[in-house]
């Protein structure tokens, strides 16, 4: 067996891939520190930091008090003064508590000081529904932050991207927010060894197709791929685009796909109204790709509802594979 094929076979879970990225970063750059609630001995709310505290010590893998605002403030200050902090939130929902530091400080300091300083801060947010954690621990809030100039917002959907995009985020001179879907943490996939980066701001075509373009984010990429498999058996050839970065959005990959298929479905877990899909739809409608549309643009997004605790209702309020199948059949067969 060649070295190459052994490399092909190496699989890690999404959580392991993030841990490996942080391990590599801590090892190669002494400015990198980890901060967050219960990330030390406990290993993180979702066991992503694991035992890194044993390897790097409490000076570099630092438990913060139960105050997101305080922790984020320290992280912004540390980034301003020369460190490369990675700040973990227990749930992305708690970003609401740190809004001042994220939106008014981290996103704006470089601009307001005329570029004299920057805030090279990486923030990690376990996000999304599907774990029975109810309304305050299950939201998909990436669109909130996608609205703020000065922030970068990414949603890796595979272990390989989770590692490569985290390392790319650390190289970025500005604040980067990583939304990690909790359901993805256990997903396994090929992850290359060693140091590499996956560019921020570039979408990935996960499955090329000619009939319908689906632009999906995070966990929805996998639901779209499952739907695409079924649809292929029905003669509907779906192109699945993994957006990967909410801000800055990769216009060209989306527009090229729409020019090819003329039919676009956006699938995202955040609330449909004023969400990521609204921006994608408007961007396409404003572009020259409008001329290539053959059907109205469809959006599948979260319902106008807090995420329910009841597991059946929890499934019902976010797009599922049958929803994607129905939308794709309708748009492909000219029913809309």
């Amino acid at each position: 067996m060649s070295a190459d094929s052994r490399e092909e076979l190496r699989e890690l879970s999404y959580a392991e891939a993030i841990r490996e990225a942080m391990d590599i970063a801590l090892g190669r750059d002494e400015r990198v520190i980890l901060m967050g609630e219960d990330i030390g001995v406990y290993g993180g709310a979702f066991q992503v930091t694991g035992n890194l505290v044993e390897k790097y010590g409490t000076d570099r893998v630092m438990d913060t008090p139960i105050s997101e605002l305080g922790g984020a403030g320290v992280a912004v200050g540390a980034a301003l003064t020369g460190l490369r902090p990675i700040f973990e939130f227990q749930f992305s929902d708690f970003a609401a508590l740190a809004m001042e530091q994220i939106v008014n400080q981290a996103a704006k300091i470089r601009y307001m000081l005329g570029g004299a300083v920057s805030v090279p801060l990486v923030m990690r947010f376990p996000a999304g529904s599907g774990t029975g954690a109810a309304a305050q621990h299950s939201q998909s809030l990436e669109a909130w932050f996608g609205h703020v100039p000065g922030l970068k917002v990414i949603q890796p959907s595979t272990p390989e991207d989770a590692k490569g995009m985290l390392l790319a985020a650390l190289e970025d001179p500005d604040p980067v927010m990583i939304f990690e879907h909790k359901i993805l943490y256990k997903m396994k996939g090929h992850v290359p060894e060693g140091y590499y980066t996956t560019p921020i701001g570039k979408a990935a075509i996960r499955r090329p197709g000619t009939d319908v373009s689906i632009v999906a984010t995070s966990l929805m990429v996998h639901k779209a791929l499952a739907a695409a498999e079924t649809l292929a058996g029905e003669g509907i050839d779906v192109e699945v685009i993994d957006l990967r970065t909410v801000r800055p959005m990769d216009r060209e990959t989306i527009l090229a796909s729409v020019r090819k298929t003329g039919k676009l479905i956006c699938v995202y877990e955040g609330v449909k109204t004023l969400g990521v899909g609204a921006e994608i739809s408007a961007m396409v409608a404003e572009s020259d790709a409008f001329d290539f549309l053959e059907a109205p643009i469809l959006r599948l997004g979260g319902a106008e509802s807090p995420i329910p605790y009841n597991p059946e209702l929890e499934k019902a309020v976010v797009p599922q594979v049958p929803d994607i199948l129905e939308a794709a059949r309708n748009i492909a067969k000219g029913r809309v």
């Binding site: 003329g262 409008f290 001329d291 549309l293 053959e294 059907a295 000219g334 029913r335 809309v336």
Partner: peptide
């Protein structure tokens, strides 16, 4: 008419109003 249909008709010099539509 869909945007693409209009685009193609304009390119070919056809009046979109003269073309029977098969869509919804």
């Amino acid at each position: 008419a869909t945007p693409l249909a209009r685009h193609l008709a304009a390119k070919a010099g056809l009046d979109i109003g003269e073309i029977a539509g098969s869509g919804p």
